[in-house]
Amino acid sequence: MTAALQAHSVKRKRFGSRNNRVIPGFGLTMGFTLLYLGFMFLIPVGGLLLYTSLMSWEEFWKAVSHPQVVASYKLSFGASFIGASINLVFGALVAWVLVRYEFPGKRVIDALVDLPFALPTAVAGIALVTLYASTGWVGQNLEVWGIKVAYTQLGVVVALTYIGLPFVVRTVQPVLEDLETEREEASASLGASRLTTVRRVILPALLPALLTGYALAFARAVGEYGSVVFISGNMPYRTEITPLLIVAKAEQYDYQGAAAIGTVMLVAAFLLLLVINGIQWWTSRRGL
């Protein structure tokens, strides 16, 4: 650790003096970046945290532990967990199929994977509720089996699966492309069956990418609002997600309640980002 830090500072000294002489614009670009981040990001986020910290502990606790709010955490985190898990399985499968196999229309399908990322969430929301309503193309077929999706918790899972879809595919795909088939050949020539090779050679190599994609999909799903509110029906204690409660409280000018729950969500987002960075740090160390 200390050796790494020393090496870093030595490198910094050596290159620092050199590139400062040749490439201009460090002061300008760094200054603008920090100024913009400061005014647009750090001060506003600090404002929210300060606002919450001025509440008394009892007020804060009452706001964040109200049974209706707790029910919304369970739904938001639970449905995000299920959605991200579905995406982990199908995302890995889609990435595998896109990298290893050839089939007609592959390029178009590959491009479309990014769609949930580019499509406005409100559009996704009304499209999904129309599909899964009891009169919709998918919903009426599920109705026969007695499965209701729209206006149930299952609908929340569907929406969160939709918006998390690109993440696992896009994190696994490049790793799979770089994976040399020589390692699989070596494994096979040592007598391993295909299943063993997939389990013992390919999956471990994909693990960091799978975890990163999973965490990204989960993080995105926990905070999602637009695609969920149409399909969930927003029934208190049953299909209300946490972001919806924040909107509702802000609309009723209950800033304190909204700020308290918003702080919980903010902390959850920071922790998830920390986990994602941790996975990447672990990967880069493992790579060395």
């Binding site: 905070g223 609002y225 972001p243 909107v247 700020a259 969500m265 987002a269 998830l272 980002l273």
Partner: peptide, 9 residues
């Protein structure tokens, strides 16, 4: 990483 509704808030 921050929820859009938290951004609004």
């Amino acid at each position: 990483a921050i929820s859009p509704v938290v951004v609004g808030l």
